[in-house]
């Protein structure tokens, strides 16, 4: 029998895609809520992220995505509505996004390992990364964020309030 050659179809990674989409939603609303109540995030936006600036996290080439827009000193969650943005953070594949979104790897390491790359102004992305670090401390328990942050913060009372707000109001209701 001669072997027959045909185009190969690689299929889909349904589970990882599902998880990444969920985390996109949680992270998007988490960032939005943090930009309302966390003073450090608010300061970052005031100093670095101009009004009307759009940000997109996207799994290359056309995978799950998370859009944000800077409006009135806040980061508004834009869901999957953005196709392009002033600043785009690409994950090179769904596995990289999965690893980062399940807190197996922090941003600096992902960047060092070429798993993500940035289109746009680097200085804004540095500020965004600081915001992400803060939101990670709200979303994850210390045992996780201590592992992925270079300098884990100490969480005072104010920060505990931010965390409560994000979990009870920010993520479920979206304000």
């Amino acid at each position: 029998m001669r072997k027959r050659y045909m185009p190969f179809r690689s299929g889909k990674k349904h589970f990882k895609t599902f998880v990444v989409k969920c985390v996109c939603f949680i992270l998007g609303r988490g960032l939005q809520a943090a930009s309302r109540v966390d003073a450090d995030v608010r300061r970052e936006i005031r100093e670095w992220i101009p009004e009307g600036f759009t940000i997109l996290f996207k799994v290359w080439p056309e995978g799950p995505r998370l859009g944000l827009e800077s409006r009135g000193g806040m980061l508004r969650f834009r869901g999957t509505s953005l196709d392009d943005a002033d600043l785009v953070i690409y994950f090179k594949n769904i596995d990289n996004a999965f690893m980062m979104f399940t807190a197996q790897m922090g941003v600096p390491q992902a960047f060092a390992e070429h798993r993500i790359f940035v289109k746009g102004d680097i200085s804004v992305s540095m500020s965004l990364i600081r915001c992400l670090n803060i939101v990670e401390t709200h979303l994850f328990p210390p045992i996780i964020y201590r592992r992925i942050l270079r300098r884990p913060p100490s969480m005072g009372l104010k920060k505990q309030f931010c965390r409560l707000y994000i979990y009870l109001v920010g993520i479920p209701i979206g304000i």
Binding site: E47, W48, P108, I122, S125, I129, R151
Partner: peptide, 18 residues
């Protein structure tokens, strides 16, 4: 100092620099 916190090279520095 402020300008430095916007520089991409801080990302790969072993220690955080704020």
């Amino acid at each position: 100092a402020k300008t430095a916190t916007g520089d991409g090279s801080l990302l790969l520095n072993p220690e955080e620099l704020e």
